[in-house]
């Protein structure tokens, strides 16, 4: 029986593992893919306290080693179901069933798709969800970025230094992203903003050739692009827990700043929880809080 099973080895999950191990709890971290979470896609982190510059890969690796060296077991299996038996809980993966006193859900989120035809088949053939990963393949080409948040603005700015033309397409008339980034973008001669518009279709032969863009009045235009970078937000990865964990209408876990879910002994940490600010430092913060709450719960239920 584990004291805590942490689902997800991103910044929230690994921080939780560090706190739980320092309290000498028996900890298992389950990760479906690879440690680090989405931060591994970030080239340079500049807003983490005491680290002026660090790559996402280096950050993730340091965090992973720290948790591991403290004695956290880290296993690469996907948690497909969790069960609550009051006095203990179970986490089920395709290979194993694990028993634990507490669970910390730190699954994070995945890229939201546009949900238009051919999107899936054109991934890697013109469609991308990561400008810093794939931008280099579009040097001197024409690309579009769709979205209105920080990621979309940062993607457009990053790409504007590499490519010939960037079309920034957003369904509203103003951007949610940071003013400073937006102002930088407005100075760029090769960035063209297309507001109040949606990407409604993708034209391709073997790879993306052009996109159909429709404005709010229903006027359509075809724009020739080699790449379309989709930055329309993220979806929390909570579907496997829906049976017992309360989610909001967007799929985020209904847990407050104390990280408590509706089930005693199960906590939520990081981007998969209802919250205002989703940053590296707030994910780490959630990890610390969730672990501390889990430790309290374990110590209070020792005689059970």
């Amino acid at each position: 029986m584990y004291d805590a099973i942490i689902i997800g080895a991103g910044p929230a999950g690994l921080t939780a593992a560090i706190y739980a191990r320092r309290a000498e709890k028996k900890v298992l971290v389950l990760e479906a893919k690879s440690y680090g979470g989405q931060i591994i896609n970030t080239l340079d982190i500049e807003n983490y306290p005491a680290e002026e510059h660090i790559s996402g890969f280096d950050f993730a690796t340091k965090l992973y080693n720290q948790a591991k060296n403290l004695g956290a077991e880290i296993v690469f299996e996907k948690a497909v179901e969790i069960k609550d038996f009051k006095s203990y809980k179970e986490v089920i993966t395709p290979r194993n069933t694990y028993q634990t006193k507490t669970i910390i859900l730190a699954t994070g989120s995945e890229n939201r798709k546009l949900n238009i035809e051919k999107e899936e088949e054109l991934i890697g053939k013109g469609i991308s969800y990561c400008a810093t990963c794939d931008g280099a393949f579009y040097k001197k080409k024409r690309v579009a970025v769709v979205g209105g948040g920080n990621t979309a603005l940062e993607d457009a700015l990053y790409l504007s230094n590499l490519v010939d033309t960037v079309y920034l397409i957003h369904r509203r008339d103003s951007f949610r992203g940071e003013e400073a980034t937006l102002n930088q973008l407005k100075e760029k001669e090769n960035v063209q903003m297309i507001l109040n518009s949606n990407v409604v279709a993708l034209n391709a032969t073997d790879r993306l050739k052009s996109i159909e863009v429709e404005d709010l009045e229903g006027n359509k235009q075809t724009i020739e692009v080699d790449g379309l970078f989709v930055a329309v937000g993220r979806i929390p990865e909570n579907e496997n827990f829906r049976q017992i964990i309360q989610l909001d209408s967007a799929g985020y876990i209904e847990a407050g700043e104390d990280c408590h879910t509706n089930v005693e002994g199960i906590y939520a940490a990081g981007d998969n929880r209802v919250k205002e600010v989703r940053q590296l430092v707030t994910a780490a913060s959630d990890g610390a809080i969730a672990a501390t709450e889990a430790i309290k719960y374990i110590n209070n239920h020792q005689e059970d």
């Binding site: 690879s34 990561c130 794939d134 393949f137 073997d206």
Partner: peptide, 29 residues
């Protein structure tokens, strides 16, 4: 990279007898 039409990495291409038989994009377990 061009020859294999790679435009997203990591990209794994499995080649048998000189011919591509499978491809995957992104980090894989």
């Amino acid at each position: 990279a061009d020859e294999y039409g790679v435009s997203s990495i990591p990209c794994l291409v499995f080649v048998k007898e000189g011919k591509e038989v499978k491809r995957s994009i992104g980090l894989q377990p």
